[in-house]
Amino acid sequence: MKGIKKNFLITVLLLLAAVTLYLFYNMGSNWEFALRLRGVKVAAIIVVSCCVAYSSVAFQTLTNNRILTPSIMGFESVYLLIQTLIVFMYGDLTFQVLSGWGNFLLSVLGMIGFAFLLYILIYKKGKDNLYLLLLVGIILGTLFNSLSSFMQLLIDPSDYFIVQGKMFATFNKINRDLLWPSAGVLAVLLVVGFRTAKYLDVLALGRDQAINLGLNYNRMVQLFLVIIAILVSVSTALVGPITFLGLLVTNLTYELFKTHRHDVVIAACCLVTAVTLLSGQFVMERLFHLSIPVSAIINLVGGLYFMFLLLRVRKL
């Protein structure tokens, strides 16, 4: 426990250092403007970090492994399909037809609606096999991706850049009006999430053990699935898809904090995610000069790290 406290402290300090570096590095003469611009990005990064951290940790506990993330379940495909469809229909008029708010609400509702339909479909059939739920989600995701690619073929290349902008997560054009409501939703869910984190400790023991210990397994799994769906939808609609971020940060967290208490792991994971995103954003701005989306960098690093993990471990 002592080592964990020390690591926790170090991570907090790292985060503070990262925030300070990001906010104040090379500020230029108009420091007020720079600070406001960067402040919004930092706030967005923290909101997204908490969403990704909680949803990934909870999801991995539910599915009992460390190599999946909730976003593969089809959320991002739904998001991309909605974005492609909008551009496909309205072309370069997209921004006039649909305000930032409209797009945000449409995406969030689309993704949450998709998740609920999926849950109902699987649970109504009396099949409480989570892997089945995932596989159905992924297959639907593949289907949506094909439909999106087909529309993307037909879209005018100049309009396509609107879609491409949505394909990668970015913190450079955060809509300030959307940030605070998202933070509100997140705050409420995090309160609920932390109060129920102890149930995750029990769920981690596996289905049979959890039932044996008196937990209403299906109810609990459904509760967490709902929380996960909302968190993933909000963060995806706010900045865009970052598929492998959750994978990278949960595994990093478990490496650094050798504990299975979920309240500790989740809190630590939020910090680790924020540090990862901030450094990714910093590298992207200073090293690549904004030429490549931060999510492409993180997916590359996360993907390579994941391959390394898969090949290194003895047993999965």
């Binding site: 492994n65 190599i67 999946l68 593969i72 096999n129 892997y131 089945l132 995932l134 596989l135 992924i138 990668f168 598929t243 492998f244 030429s291 490549i292 989306p293 492409a296 960098i297 997916n299 590359l300 996360g302 993907g303 390579l304 994941f306 391959m307 898969l310 999965l316």
Partner: peptide, 25 residues
């Protein structure tokens, strides 16, 4: 039975994300 294809799909996603990195560049 379902876990193996799930891992495979993740694996595919990772390969895809590496290709995407180059495609974006």
């Amino acid at each position: 039975v379902v876990f193996v294809p799930l891992v495979g799909l993740m694996f595919g996603g990772i390969i895809g994300s590496i290709s995407t990195f180059f495609a974006v560049r």
